[in-house]
Simulated scan of single mutants.
Amino acid sequence: MKSIKTYLLVSKQISLSFLILIAFVGLQSCKSDKGREVDDPVQLQKDNVIQIVTENMDFQMPDTIPSGWNTFRYKNLSPQTHFFLVDKYPQGKTIKDVRTLVIPVFDSGMKLINEGKSEEGFAEFGKLPEWFSEVVFVGGSGLISPGNIGETMIKLDPGYYMVECYVKMNNGVFHSSMGMIRELIVSDKVSENTELTTDIRINISSTEGIVISDSIHRGLQTFAVFYKDQIVHENFVGHDINLVRLSGNADIEALDNWMNWADPKGLIDPAPEGVTFLGGVNDMPTGSTGYFTVTLEPGNYVLISEVPNPSSKNMLKTFTVSE
């Protein structure tokens, strides 16, 4: 019988290989697009903020950014809900390695699973290259609804990264398969940014869930999210923080169920009625801190994690901002 440690390592490899496969398919989809290419107008701004714009199934952003603390301002101009997640690859590994060393294994494994041969399918993933365990999710934004802007700060080391979104279209196809995947180079040049001054501190862990340490008030607020630990959950990804504004017809139970991408009805367009996603901080390693800044109007809100049944893990926290 496999040990728990071995199971988690295999699960992590499955998670990483799955997301990278989706990313690769998305990249190939982009390359096959015969439409007119548009020059990327997004540049690193004078205020040291990296602008990311999504108009359809794309990330318009610089190809190379400095290392150190970086603030990302993500503007979602598309009709779907999105996030961006940054994945750090081992030195020397590129999308070519994914195509030659990962795709055949993952294709055969998924084929077996789809045929109902789950045990054989998961065993197939044991053929994945060992370096996949070195790919690390290092943060990004939380979910952002159409027409909204999210601002997130994370610290990045020099290296080769990919930026992706794996929310699903209403037909179940991942956004990364539709083009929401791109390579990102983080250079040795260090940004001039420093950590933000914090208004609200949040700890998140698998044992305690979401713990809010400060009162939350209206106006411009900066949240610091500290990852006390990080584990692989049942849907093969780690926990994160997403801020949601609720309207009168919002259904908390529907939101709770929707946050699991592994459910056919989860993390899929459209988002549940009555919810507006305002950003947050995506999956990060143990001991990491990320920041997000948002203007809070009076009303009802939720902090929630993209894991199966977040309410059962104390990863769904409601709060009210007063007048």
Rank of each mutant, 00 (worst) to 15 (best):
K2C: 05
S3H: 01
L8Y: 05
Q13V: 15
I14L: 14
L19Q: 10
I20E: 06
L21Y: 12
F24I: 12
L27K: 05
Q28V: 02
S29I: 06
C30W: 06
D33M: 07
R36V: 15
R36N: 14
D40N: 15
P41A: 12
D47Y: 07
N48E: 11
V49W: 06
T54F: 01
F59H: 06
Q60R: 10
I65W: 01
G68F: 11
F72I: 03
R73Y: 04
L77H: 12
S78C: 01
S78N: 00
Q80W: 07
L85D: 04
K88F: 04
Y89A: 11
G92C: 08
V98R: 00
T100E: 12
T100V: 10
L101K: 14
I103W: 07
M110W: 14
L112G: 06
I113E: 04
N114P: 01
G116P: 01
S118Y: 15
F122E: 15
G126E: 11
G126D: 09
G126Q: 09
K127I: 05
P129G: 11
V138K: 04
L143S: 07
I144W: 11
G147N: 15
G147E: 14
I149D: 08
T152Q: 00
I154A: 00
K155C: 09
L156R: 03
D157R: 05
Y166K: 00
V167T: 08
V167Y: 02
K168H: 07
S176T: 01
S176Y: 02
S176C: 00
S177V: 05
M178F: 07
S187L: 08
K189F: 08
E192K: 15
T197N: 14
D199V: 10
I200F: 13
N203P: 01
S205G: 04
T207A: 09
T207W: 02
G209C: 06
V211C: 06
D214G: 08
I216H: 01
R218L: 15
Q221C: 12
T222H: 02
T222A: 05
V225C: 14
K228Q: 13
I231S: 12
V232P: 07
V232W: 08
V232T: 15
V232E: 15
H233W: 12
N235Y: 03
H239K: 09
N242H: 12
V244Q: 05
V244L: 06
L246F: 09
I252Y: 02
E253D: 10
A254P: 03
N257V: 12
N260Y: 06
D263L: 04
G266E: 05
L267K: 14
P272C: 10
T276V: 11
F277C: 03
L278T: 06
G280I: 04
S288I: 05
T289S: 01
T293M: 00
V294Y: 00
L296G: 00
E297H: 08
N300A: 10
E306A: 13
E306W: 03
P310D: 06
P310F: 07
S311H: 13
S312N: 12
S312L: 12
N314T: 09
K317P: 01
T318G: 05
T320P: 12
V321P: 10
V321K: 08
S322E: 13
S322V: 14
E323Q: 14
